[in-house]
Amino acid sequence: MNKNIRQSLFFLFLLFLQVLVLNNINFLGHINPYLYIAFIFLYPLKEKRFTFLFLSFILGLCVDFFSDSGGIHAFSTIFIAYIRLFFVKVYFRKTTSDYSFFNLKSEAFGAVFNYVVTLTLIHHLIYFSFINFSLQNLSIVFLNTLYASVFTLILFFLGTYIFTKNK
């Protein structure tokens, strides 16, 4: 029960951090981090994935409600939520029996870095392609993806570094 409350508080914290603070940064005019996808990285791995997929859909849709972007955040968030398992298998070499013991903090930094960077880049690429919504200005799509990913990744690794308890 305690775990569920913590998860839902984390969900609400990320949502309000995103829509009230991070959406208004506009660094250099237009660069914003999309830190709410940290929910996808940190949600525990489970055999049954319906709750996880549905929660990521709701999170994306809530961000969409606040930023008037239709269903773009929802689309890109469910996409990385679905393919997350594939990258867990590739980078961490886990099987189904390891899922309940899996914790991002106890893994090697190199593998965690690859995992987070890949998912962030995929999410941002889908997001900016839909935001642009045309085949013109493709260079802007790739540049925005790159800048926003760097911004998101810096915030994510700083955040995990700060909030990890020292033993």
Binding site: F57, G60, S69, G70, G71, A74, F75, I78
Partner: peptide, 21 residues
């Protein structure tokens, strides 16, 4: 089942996106 659920949610998100424009 997971893939179908995923497709279903993506379809909803896409229809919101197209309606929004």
């Amino acid at each position: 089942k997971y893939f179908l659920f995923f497709l279903f949610l993506e379809f909803i998100a896409l229809s919101f996106t197209f309606n929004n424009l």
